[in-house]
Write a protein that binds this DNA or RNA. Sequence first.
RNA 1: CGCGGGAUGGAGCAGCGGCAGCUCGCGUGGCUCAUAACCACGAGGUCCCAGGUUCGAGUCCUGGUCCCGCAACCA
Length: 478
Amino acid sequence: MNYYVTTSIPYVNGEPHVGHALEFVMADVLARAARQREETTLFSTGTDEHGTKIAQKAESLGLTPTQLVGKMSQEFRELAHTLNISNDRFIRTTDKGHEQRAQLIWKALAHDIYKAKYTGWYDVKEETFVPEAQADPERMKPDHPQAYQKLEEENYFFPLSKYNDQIKEAIESGAFQIVPETRRNEILSVLREGLEDISISRPKEKLEWGIPVPGDKTQVMYVWFEALMNYITVLGYPEHQDFKDYWPANTQVIGKDIIRFHAAIWPAILFSLNIPLPKQLYVHGHITLDGKKMSKSIGNVVSPKEIVDKYGVDAFRYYFLRHIPSYNDGDFSWDAFESSYNNELANELGNAVQRTAVMITKYQNGIIGDIPPAKHDKAPIEEAIVQCRFDRALDEIWDQVRGLNQYIDEEKPWSIAKEGDSDHLREVLAYQASCLLEIADLLVPFLPDTAAKIKAVFEEGIVRPIEGTLFPKSDREE
RNA sequence: CGCGGGAUGGAGCAGCGGCAGCUCGCGUGGCUCAUAACCACGAGGUCCCAGGUUCGAGUCCUGGUCCCGCAACCA
């Protein structure tokens, strides 16, 4: 069985933030879980690097676009590394391979692409067309100081409307699964109203920083149209074996802001190419900081690296996977983060490992003996992962952690030790070790380092204490 | 205007027809193996409002009120 999972590719006009990190981590859980199930797994991410905004930003910084995207792309690569993301590929839309294959795809779509005039309000300062609905009516008046210009451009168009019903049917039948349900309803309602054809190119004179339209030197491809193709260009569409092995993707992970692109435009492209739709589209929510929308002007941005540097990568993964609701928006605050770190990671899990290891060392010279096999029901956790309910999965795992602490309290191994019932003591302690090994196994996709550390302590049948402790709490203040 | 989602103890959430539940926080007690950790118990809710269906409604229906999201480029 092959398993292919993707993240959306971040647009490199800004620094990586916790939202990008969330998506990376979620997709990573899916990839690691698939590998744990022993499926042949491919996990791809990357960066989206063309378009007006990039060109403008580069200019404002006195860089060439190539210099800018090289630098920014590297930052996202580093973010993935910082978060212990197990991606197999990292595609850049400025990769030669992507550019060439995007042109191949354009040609394969030629049977659907048509040329038409696009008329709209053009904002000279921003160098962009303003959609009718968002346009400021005041600025439509010719005597306004920043008046829009009524401009007409000839562009290529892609007939989304033609595929409207096919897409709707794929979603309704479940062939193309969208989770959570609320996002599925959202897109179905858009489809019920009907999609409009989209412009998929820009005149080169206005925008040089893009992939040239094959056979037309005057036009470059609209960024989004070309960026979506990364999911198959990275596999070497159309001829490479990877494409044959891994497409359709099992799960594509995206944020709620770009659902239309992935649940409307992307499926339409795939239908036009006559290749299957991904099986599942998982749409996560957005993160607020201290209840407020992330914003540079408010100055409340928190960099993922800052959190990881302070608390470690698994603490980061833990908070974002469990405390940002998988099917909803969520909030990050240092208070909530620290509270979950101290209570759940340090006190409940870390301490359970510690007390068990210490008891075995103290009472039995570190010898565990035969460890009975684990016996908890994993099915709810596996099901939660398939449904991308990472928060639920961790809730379930933490039920086991709590269960273990309760067990220890009921059995009171320290009393058994005093009574000198060594058989019973060995049994109880071995069971504790067994529970921890089982928990470690369940944690593999979520907290890979922690899982490995716990396994290292108990799996040899002899306690091998870790240096220091899991999730240390001391010296934490500021 | 339209479409979608939501309103449940101090905070964050689950429950979607059958005795109101979880985590955090708060209070009390227990334990001492452990990272001043762990365990138990308790206080705290007219489940947004008003009607209706039903033997029975946070849970279904109708009508309100208030929030939030989406409507071509912010994960």
